[in-house]
Design a protein around this nucleic acid. Structure first.
Lengths: 154, 154
DNA sequence: GCTTGACCTTCCCATGATGGGAAGGCCCAA
DNA sequence: TTGGGCCTTCCCATCATGGGAAGGTCAAGC
């Protein structure tokens, strides 16, 4: 079947199928006389495997390893599990990072009245790093105080 | 001060400072006779603002708006809050996506013994889409069944 | 003064995964 | 035969960041 058919069936775009082939993630399929790529059901099967792994957030280099294990009858599920758990650990780290951002952002947003005044704890929080920036120092932000002691070293 | 000093003080790498200038996120600073960029404390202040916003996951285009609001004495905190809340919504969507990946991955990992055999529910889960792939169909994965009915249309 | 090493400049390239689009060829049905 | 839809390759863009090369500057030590 053509690449468009394979794309529809596997859920991987034609563009991505060509890319996966280019980087050697999947083998180059047979070509017809017209130079069209020719896929069969096992190719679609492999592409679906890749797509599901992508949906789970696996980076392509890890999927490369998973594909090798997939096709290895003598594989050890210990290795597969290790890859999965390593990925879980990375996703957890990402989530922890997101949670921290959300925590800080929500606190800032909660402390902002949003009542139309220019006074804004969110801006203050970005400007100074205190938990609640106390001073309303937004007035000194311009390009005014260009001092002349330039080589100042901390 | 030199760009290196500004980088150290603001926590933004020199590379990034030049990039932010190139894309117009921050104004081009004065230059010395040597063509070195010359920063003052207000520049460092602005860079620190950018860095904190980046730490909270704001994309640069949103930071561009925040910077404009920061420097606008007549700003409305309503607008700032709207931007922050929009970002919260996006981060929450990302977290939901991560959580779903983690949920599926943990379930797969939990169902895998990791005992050295080749039998692997993780691989099965990637291969077929069932909640628990029942059949141990990993045997048919090779490049064997290259059928000849190529123009098959679903 | 001269050397040395740390710093600065610009420019190009790479990442990771994906999409957009142009220019040209192929295929099938009307 | 023609038209439209599919395919091919090739180049470029994203987003934020880093690496590195080739060359200029500066400050300190001798």
């Amino acid at each position: 079947m053509n690449i468009g058919q394979a794309a529809t069936r596997s859920g991987v775009s034609a563009k991505m199928i060509r890319y996966y082939e280019a980087i050697g993630l999947i083998p180059a399929p047979a070509r017809r006389d017209s130079n069209y790529r020719d896929y069969d059901v096992s190719d679609v099967h492999r592409l679906s495997f890749v797509r599901r792994a992508r949906d789970l957030g696996f980076p392509l280099e890890r999927i490369r390893i998973l594909l090798a294990l997939w096709g290895d009858d003598g594989r050890s599920n210990t290795e597969v599990k290790a890859i999965a758990l390593a990925h879980v650990t990375e996703l957890e780290a990402q989530r922890a990072s997101l949670d921290e951002m959300l925590r800080v952002l929500r606190r800032l947003a909660d402390s902002c009245e949003g009542d139309g005044r220019s006074d804004c704890p969110i801006i203050d929080g970005l400007e100074g790093l205190g938990p609640q920036a106390s001073g309303k120092g937004s007035g000194d932000k311009g390009s005014g105080e260009k001092g002349s002691d330039e080589a100042c070293r901390a």
